[in-house]
């Protein structure tokens, strides 16, 4: 794939051994980049496979896994978010399937998606304390421990 077109979005292309290549982008440019990738004829990434959130201890990484039906291509867009104020613009305007993904990440990582109005906890019960998939999460609810009686 020819990524030179993407320079205007201030991207950084990361290649590593044993890994797929990622396009690193600032969170402010994310929506524009995705819009471009979706609509340009060359890339035409029309399906968002999934959003993957990773806790990198110091900060969070979000990987947007894009697939193209027409050109059979893949792209992975990575965004790094600050751990102390985890906020990122929502992309449900571009890909509607992102809604559940964003809710899931909000639920399990506590990353807030701005302008996603109906952000809710998807899996965990209402009023659950903490975000389970963070590395520093500690199980505090005693009801969940295995008690033999």
């Amino acid at each position: 794939m020819n990524f030179e077109v993407l320079d205007k979005f201030n991207v950084e292309i990361i290649k590593k051994e044993n890994s797929f290549e990622k396009i690193r982008v600032e969170s402010s440019n994310l929506c524009d980049l995705l819009n471009f990738l979706k609509n340009s004829a060359e890339f035409n990434f029309d399906r968002l496979n999934t959003i993957i959130a990773i806790d990198l201890v110091d900060n969070f990484e979000l990987i947007y896994d894009l697939h193209s039906i027409n050109t059979s291509q893949y792209a992975r867009i990575s965004v790094i978010i600050d751990r102390n104020s985890p906020k990122i613009p929502s992309i449900i305007e571009i890909f509607k399937s992102a809604y559940y993904d964003e809710c899931e990440i909000f639920d399990l990582f506590g990353i807030e998606f701005t302008n996603n109005q109906n952000l809710k906890r998807l899996f965990m019960p209402k009023g659950w304390v903490g975000y389970p998939l963070r590395k520093d999460y500690k199980q505090t609810d005693e009801r969940l421990s295995w008690n033999e009686k």
Partner: peptide, 20 residues
């Protein structure tokens, strides 16, 4: 397993099953 990351996509009966 050496350091790295991978997504494998499988055509499962209920749609694409990806494992990262």
């Amino acid at each position: 397993v050496p350091e790295g990351e991978f997504i494998s996509n499988v055509e499962a009966p209920r749609g694409v099953c990806s494992c990262y």
